[in-house]
């Protein structure tokens, strides 16, 4: 039996695990609630009432769903590697004649499929909403979809990396969220307000999902009450560089996590 066939088997059963777990449906529910909140509250909270005339503004706000879906990667992948060591399932899995690289790669691909499904689900809601309100779908939504997939993959790789060095699954999940959402978020804010580029941060990659719809100042400006402006200026994001950075995170994170995990011993 070739390693490729074994990889297919691992992907199949790892994906089955995701389908059986509640977390897939919880994230699905959260993404749906987030999208519904935008659809309901945007017309209620706007001073002018109704949906914005500019389709890009609405599309921008609807990226909350895909962003949440991409972040769902942390809940699928946090225990992918650390869990095998922590919960002793590795004692069964690792005594089979399969390369560890095949196991990790299979887990990564299964997680990617789950995250992709979540992202697709939230973009279907976005597309239906935009069609219902504006009778069109902007081309930028497809770009946003591509960037969301890229961000999901990059985020997944970072989770895998943290999971490969962490002792426990919970620690890996919390550590990744703190790293990307808090630490990277703080650095990104500092760089943004000091007019410096932040494309190399993964959190900026996440922001690119929404940035394709236009500059923040223009989009948010349209949402401001008449006569008022944003209290600060924001650096225009270089989406191309942010996408390249996400590819680097994805490849380096995955390769490093496989290297570390292969050397890890189940003592």
């Amino acid at each position: 039996m070739s390693e490729l066939e074994k990889l297919r088997v691992v992907i199949g059963y790892e994906f089955l695990k995701h389908i059986r777990r509640k977390r897939l449906y919880v994230i699905l529910g959260l993404a749906l609630v987030a999208e519904l909140a935008v659809i309901i509250f945007v017309p209620l909270l706007r001073e002018a009432g109704g949906y914005p005339d500019n389709i890009m503004v609405m599309a921008f706000f609807l990226t909350v769903g895909p962003s949440l879906a991409s972040l769902g990667a942390v809940f699928f992948a946090g225990d992918a590697i650390a869990g095998e060591f922590e919960s002793k399932t590795g004692f069964i899995l690792f005594t089979n004649p399969v390369k560890r690289t095949t196991l990790w790669l299979g887990k990564y691909i299964a997680c990617s499929i789950a995250v992709t499904l979540l992202i697709m689900f939230s973009y279907i809601i976005t597309a239906i909403t935009l069609l219902a309100i504006y009778t069109e779908i902007p081309f930028e939504m497809y770009q946003s979809f591509g960037l969301a997939l890229l961000f999901g993959g990059a985020f997944l790789s970072v989770v895998f990396f943290v999971s490969s060095v962490a002792k426990g699954a919970m620690g890996a999940t919390v550590m990744t969220l703190l790293l990307v959402m808090v630490l990277f978020g703080i650095i990104e804010s500092i760089l943004m307000f000091t007019d410096n580029p932040s494309w190399f941060l993964l959190s900026t990659g996440g922001d690119s999902i929404a940035a394709v719809y236009g500059e923040y100042s223009v989009i948010l400006g349209e949402f401001m009450p008449e006569g008022r402006e944003l209290p600060f200026e924001m650096e225009t994001m270089n989406i191309g560089l942010a996408a390249m950075a996400m590819v680097v995170y994805m490849v380096v994170g995955l390769v490093t996590s496989i290297f570390i995990s292969n050397r890890r011993q189940l003592a």
């Binding site: 059963y13 089955l16 695990k17 777990r21 919960s87 002793k88 399932t89 004692f91 069964i92």
Partner: peptide
């Protein structure tokens, strides 16, 4: 004392 995937 090995463990198995709980969901299978």
């Amino acid at each position: 004392t090995p463990e198995f995937y709980q969901f299978l």
